[in-house]
Structures are given as structure tokens and as C-alpha cells.
Computed example of a mutant assay.
Amino acid sequence: MLTFDRVSSSYEDSQVLFDLELEVESGTVTTLLGKNGMGKTTTIRTLFGITDKITGDIVLNGTRINGFAPHKIANMGVALVPEGRQVFPTLTVVENLVATARAKTAKERKLEMDKIYALFPRLAERKTSFANLLSGGEQQMLAIGRALMTKPKFLILDEATEGLAPVVRREIWMALQALKAEDLTILVIDKSLKPLCKLGDRHNILQKGALAWSGDSAELADPNSKARRCLSL
């Protein structure tokens, strides 16, 4: 689905990514790990072409997308749940979902929304509430639902459960497991290793804008592994 081949990028004159190598296989869940400031969010921004001086090759589903506008990349089936949720605060739950719907008819939109309400029953209960009146967890559910309304082939979540209550985190991890069972390709940035080990097929750790380690869940779960040493640095 996605390949970064020796990708570097900057913010003006400050380089953040350095010859990054990254692969996301179709139908799998891939994670991106590392301490704050190591380039995780910049990787996502680079994918969408909104950083500077991008070099190397970014290939999405067989197409080199360097230089593509963000909306064109989104139209290729990529949906982002951004850090901080960024829902439309003065729109209701229903209006937030309709705003990003790819379905053309009201009947199709209803079917898509019903799937999201089944995934997140809380949203069904709050469908007429304005987004700014939802809890942080409900807003994150809405942000995921809004992304799913675009019928993506590739879902990206930046800080999927950061700052959320444990019960809400569990609901989101369960929803992602359900989406994985549907063979949706998912890239997740998060810091919760235990649920990521259960969910993820392949894990990647960034250090100072480069790939420091890549491996499977068994290696990531091992407290004596290179992966854990990389995360502690």
C-alpha cells in the first residue's frame, strides 16, 4: 500500500526526516512508534506533501505521489484521523459525518452511518449533539467515524488514544480490531505497547527522523529486545 524509499523532508531549513525507509502492506496494521519529536507526525505530513524539500520516493498503491496535492492523495483512498481530533465543533455528530461522506445518495450515507454507529454506539446516542459538547473520547470516535465516511482503502491514526480514559481506549482498540478483520489497511501512531502488540502486524520505531527498528509483535513485546532499547533512548 505504501512505501517510503529514502525519504527526507524539512520544515523550511530544519530537516526532520533522514532517508526514511518504511513499508505498509495492504490489509495489515502497521504501527509507527518513538518518542516525541522523532518524526512520526512529520512522516504523515510528508505523505500528504505538506512538508518542505521532500526527496526520495513515496509510492502509494503503485503510484509515485511526490508532488501530489493533499486532496489528490486523499482521493486515492487515504483517510487521516489527525492528532487532536479536529472535528467540526459547531456541527452535530450527524453533520460531521455527512460533511465527509463519499456516498452520493441519502440512502447510501445512512448505511455508512449505521456502520459507524454499530462500531461506536455512543455516537448513535449523541447523534444530535454538537461536537464541542462531546467528551474527548467521543470526539475521537467521531473523528474516526468521519474518516471512515470517506470509504478509505488506507486509514491513518495519529495518536489514536492519547489522553483518553482507559474504558474509551478499549472501545477504540476493539473498533480497530473490527476494521482489521475487514482487511482495511491501517497505520497507527500511539504509545500503548500492549494493545499495539495485539493489533499490529508490523511495528516501526523512529529515532531522529530515521528508521531505527522494524519487526513483529513478538519482538516488540520482549522487554529485552532491541525494540525496547530503541524506545528507551
Rank of each mutant, 00 (worst) to 15 (best):
Q86A: 04
T42P: 03
L233Q: 04
I172P: 02
E108I: 07
E25I: 14
E21C: 13
V93K: 06
S217E: 13
R109C: 03
L184C: 08
P166L: 06
V87M: 08
Q139H: 12
L33G: 12
V24Y: 11
V7C: 08
K151S: 14
Q86Y: 03
P152G: 14
G62C: 03
D19M: 06
G137R: 10
G209T: 04
S129L: 12
K127H: 11
K127E: 07
E171A: 11
F130L: 15
M141Q: 05
K127V: 05
L133Q: 10
L91D: 13
G67S: 06
T161P: 01
F88G: 03
G37T: 15
P166W: 04
L199E: 03
G37I: 15
P89D: 06
L47P: 06
E125V: 11
G209C: 06
N66H: 10
L220A: 15
G163K: 06
V168W: 04
A218Q: 13
S135Q: 13
K127G: 03
L211V: 08
M38F: 09
E159V: 12
T63I: 11
L206T: 00
K180F: 03
K194R: 09
E95I: 11
T51G: 01
E182W: 03
P152A: 13
R228S: 01
L231C: 00
E182A: 09
H203D: 06
M141C: 01
E219T: 11
D13Q: 15
H71M: 07
L196E: 07
S8T: 13
G39E: 11
D216M: 05
V78H: 02
S225H: 00
S192E: 13
K198F: 02
L111F: 03
E12C: 10
A106Y: 05
V24P: 11
I205R: 02
F4V: 12
P70Q: 02
V98Y: 14
E108T: 09
L80R: 08
L111M: 09
D114M: 04
K226A: 07
K226M: 00
G37F: 14
L97Y: 01
T42I: 03
D216P: 01
N96Q: 08
M141A: 07
R122K: 13
T3G: 00
C197F: 04
G137W: 10
A227T: 00
G84L: 11
I144F: 09
S9R: 06
T185P: 02
T3R: 05
K226L: 02
I50R: 14
G49T: 12
P152L: 14
K35A: 15
E23P: 07
G77W: 01
S135H: 12
A124D: 02
F120Q: 08
Q15G: 10
L199T: 05
L17E: 04
T63R: 09
D19Y: 05
S129G: 06
L233N: 02
L17K: 05
